[in-house]
Write a protein that binds this DNA or RNA. Structure first.
Length: 357
DNA sequence: TCTCCTCGAGATCT
DNA sequence: CTCGAGGAGA
């Protein structure tokens, strides 16, 4: 969000989006440490290129207990020219000219830090930020407070990116810490929940959500949620490796054997009756599973791979499948070989398939 | 059957 | 960002 312009030396200029690879950034890890530091920031918006950090907090935890905290407002590095265009101007919530928070920061400079909806959300006003410490002072303090701890937060990647970039631009060290994301934990532990926002997770964990949306409050909420989730993990799994397995990469496939006919009677003259059909590529309007179901419903057989038993290869589009070499998939090449070898196999387009079915 | 890759869809952070 | 779907290759 925010305008793509920055005021410098009395002029404004457009900010070029910088592409940073954040090469020293830590990894999102699945661990349940008893010693760690919870972090949270408030910002002027979602976009770390156009928005600024306005508050940083951290809560140090030792042996499952909160033992120390850090919290500071931060003077924004980017700001808006008063009255300048913003794409969200049409949305009522974002502007309220009568609100004191909307007043320009200074009548002489005529720009402001936070839009009204951020003040409504966090309670942080332009006036508060006018007196806030500079990032060149806050960022080093923050980095020294967290040290080498594992960082914990809800969707922490958001915070880490802002903080990493801030450390980079203030030239005061690098945020290399690995981090644990309570959002990922919440999704795996409570898969039935519709949403896994911090508020939802707190409700599920019976943690008070009062005073939310100030950085230190959110650290405390996140801390309590994390400890609660840790105890649920200990109850539910005999060791952490079982829990970690939930996050393990699994190449999920449609299990053909689970797709069975929804009717008992088949038309034995149907072109797919008792024929083995294999799909390759994207069918567009229909998912592969649905297409397989149609085949089985007319008495056909389905399989994942082209073999000598295959009778039809249905070819969808490869437009968005970059891993296909030279416009032909392995299944297609194999089918062509088999046809040359005299097997009863036809390659048909998805369009033909839908006509036949 | 397993792993790695790429893509799109959907969700979360302020 | 994460995750699922699906192609490729071992």
């Amino acid at each position: 969000m925010g305008l793509k312009l920055e005021i410098k030396d009395g002029y404004y200029r457009y900010i070029e989006p910088e592409i940073t690879d954040r090469e020293y950034k830590g990894k999102s890890i699945i661990e349940i440490p008893d010693d760690y530091t919870v972090i949270d920031i408030e910002t002027t918006g979602y976009d770390c290129v156009y928005d600024s950090i306005i508050e940083i907090s951290a809560l140090r935890v030792r042996d499952k207990q909160a033992v120390d905290s850090f919290s500071s407002l931060v003077k924004p590095t980017k700001f808006f020219e008063f009255g300048s265009y913003d794409k969200r101007a049409d949305e009522d919530d974002y502007y309220d000219d009568s609100s004191p928070a909307f007043r320009p920061l200074s009548s002489t400079t005529g720009y402001y830090y936070v839009l009204d909806f951020i003040t409504k959300l966090t309670g942080i006003t332009n006036e508060m930020l006018d007196d806030a410490p500079e990032p060149r002072d806050v960022i080093p303090e923050f980095l020294s407070f967290v040290g080498n701890d594992i960082l914990v937060g809800h969707n922490t990647n958001f915070d880490i990116n802002f903080l990493y970039d801030a450390a980079l631009s203030e030239n005061c060290g690098t945020l290399k810490n690995n981090f644990v994301d309570t959002l990922r934990f919440s999704r795996k532990l409570f898969p039935d929940m519709d949403h896994h926002r911090l508020s939802d997770t707190a409700a599920k964990c019976a943690v008070s959500y009062e005073n939310a949306h100030r950085a230190l409050s959110d650290c405390k909420i996140t801390f309590e949620c994390f400890e609660k989730m840790k105890s649920i993990i200990s109850e539910r799994y005999s060791d952490i490796s079982q829990f970690k397995r939930l996050f393990r990469y699994v190449g999920k496939r449609i299990d053909c054997s689970t797709i069975t006919a929804q009717t008992g009677e088949f038309d034995e003259d149907h072109p797919f009756y008792n024929k083995t059909v294999v799909f390759t590529g994207d069918l567009g309007t229909m998912s592969r599973k649905e297409a397989m179901q149609l085949v089985v419903n007319v008495g056909g057989l389905i399989s994942d791979n082209v073999t000598r038993k295959t009778n039809y290869l249905v070819v969808g589009s490869f437009d968005f499948i970059k891993s296909v070499k030279g416009n032909k998939s392995t299944k297609m090449k194999k089918a062509e070989e088999l046809i040359l070898g005299g097997y009863d196999l036809k390659i048909i387009s998805d369009k033909t398939f839908f006509e036949l079915i």
